[in-house]
Design a protein around this nucleic acid. Structure first.
Length: 230
DNA sequence: CTGTGGATTTGCT
DNA sequence: GCAAATCCACAGG
């Protein structure tokens, strides 16, 4: 018999299909350094509320992989962080209050989503790298130009993929307050137990390649990268 | 399974 | 100008 955390994650969200699951995370949750908040973010739910002619819909997934990016106040500073040379028009939201979305464009085609951490003035943040789809799966497939039967892994395994699946872009979602009860973008806790996790170096960077700042749910199929990275 | 190259926006030197 | 916290298609073993 498998461990508790190996049961299908979707089991824990079947109860509420058309409403917000669990409770919204409050700002104090994000006021600590990103390497401290990151492991606690695994198992929480990222929810995007969309309005269209049919009404309100939710697209949501459970967070199964994140990476911490440290602010320039650390010694040594994190050379892989967008904030390491101080505030710029792109990264200024990272230097503001915790609990905000930092969304940036990458390689001309994709967006990646972060959550700001640390008290105002300090620039730590957490990159959301992978989700397990929970709600709005057919919409995710549409957004990703995949067949309706696409695997959960194909939908949201990777930071660019999950932003596409949820419809997140910099023009619309950068600098949104995730802790505002009225926000269309929120992170919520539905009581899912703290998962067993692995810690590894971060992916896709060329500086500080050995810093152990990537956190993932052990064995979860939606975690990005080869099997050896799960 | 692994490796390679192309697409194409954005911020910063 | 160029490099980038990526993804995808396709080639070859």
């Amino acid at each position: 018999m498998g461990s508790f955390w190996q049961l299908p994650l979707a089991m824990y969200s079947k109860a509420k299909r058309s409403s917000l699951p669990g409770r919204q995370l409050l700002r104090p949750f994000f006021e600590s350094p990103p390497e401290h908040v990151s492991p606690r973010l695994l198992g929480k739910i990222l929810v995007h509320r969309t309005e269209n002619e049919d009404g309100t819909k939710y697209i949501a997934g459970r967070i199964v992989e994140v990476e911490a990016y440290l602010g320039p106040h650390n010694t040594p500073p994190d050379p892989a962080s967008h904030s390491h040379r101080g505030p710029t028009p792109r990264n200024v939201v990272m230097f503001g209050p915790p609990g905000y979305a930092y969304v940036y464009a990458i390689y001309g085609r994709y967006f990646c989503m972060n959550v700001t951490c640390e008290p105002p003035g300090l620039a730590g943040c957490i990159l959301i790298r992978a989700l397990e789809p929970l709600q709005g799966v057919s919409q995710m497939a549409l957004n990703r130009s995949l067949q309706p039967g696409a695997s959960p892994r194909q939908l949201t395994s990777g930071p660019g993929r999950l932003c596409l699946a949820l419809g997140l872009t910099r023009p619309t979602h950068n600098a949104l307050d995730l802790c505002d009860p009225a926000s269309p973008l929120q992170i919520r806790d539905d009581g899912y137990p703290a998962p067993e996790l692995i810690v590894t170096p971060r992916i896709g960077i060329s500086a500080a390649v050995d810093w152990p700042l990537r956190f993932a749910v052990r064995g979860n199929p939606c975690v990005s990268g080869p099997r050896s990275m799960r």
